[in-house]
């Protein structure tokens, strides 16, 4: 799904095209927003704000051929704003790991991302996405939830494809670590319960 579908033909009114875009992409955008900020109500609000902004753009007389990338772009900007507003995590934290973003060769290739992903249990890993640092969460959600390719992601978040690959790699590694940690804890808990029983 390298390019998004064009919504509707020119003969439809702008309002119709716009609402059709909501019907098509509303759920995906909500999912994305929810996974990024982990707040249902805020996610709904952000999706609303995203559509409102796009509508404002249409009202200025700009033609929007393909709503999907445009909606993602606006949504992503709004989510970043949301992070900044919350300030739960400082900007420094947001920038965490940036310094080593050059990455090594292993991290820079898609195939390593694939091989790394192959070792993971998708169902279990999903539960830990919320715990990922925002930078990794962004690319992981875009890659595995929204199904965008590395190139699309790089255009959307305005970083190079290499950075996208590195972040994906590190995000998956982080997920694996968390999975392992959880398994270890579970094993320890099981052992502890056994000991307690005994």
């Amino acid at each position: 799904m390298a390019t998004g579908r064009s919504t509707g033909s020119n003969s439809e009114s702008h309002e119709d095209r716009f609402l059709t875009a909501f019907d098509e992409y509303g759920d995906a955008l909500f999912r994305h927003a929810f996974m990024r900020i982990n707040d249902r109500e805020r996610a709904v609000d952000i999706v609303h704000d995203t559509f409102a902004k796009v509508w404002g753009y249409v009202r200025q007389g700009h033609a929007v051929d393909n709503f999907r990338p445009f909606l993602y772009k606006v949504l992503n900007n709004l989510i970043i704003d949301e992070y900044r507003k919350k300030k739960e995590r400082s900007l420094d934290e947001l920038m965490e790991g940036e310094g080593v973003d050059e990455g090594n060769f292993e991290e820079l290739t898609e195939s390593t991302v694939e091989s790394l992903a192959a070792t993971l249990d998708g169902k279990k890993a999903f539960q830990f996405v919320a715990e990922l640092p925002p930078q990794y969460k962004e690319v992981v959600v875009l890659r595995f939830v929204d199904g965008l390719g590395p190139k699309e992601i790089s255009q959307l978040i305005e970083v190079s494809e290499n950075v996208v690959s590195v972040r994906l790699h590190r995000g998956l590694q982080a997920l694996r670590d968390k999975l392992n940690a959880a398994e270890t804890t579970a094993a320890e808990n099981r052992a502890r319960r056994k000991q307690a029983k005994n």
């Binding site: 192959a118 249990d121 998708g122 169902k123 999903f126 595995f144 939830v145 199904g147």
Partner: peptide
């Protein structure tokens, strides 16, 4: 992985 992840 991606299937399972996406399904979730």
């Amino acid at each position: 992985f991606s299937e399972q992840f996406h399904k979730e």
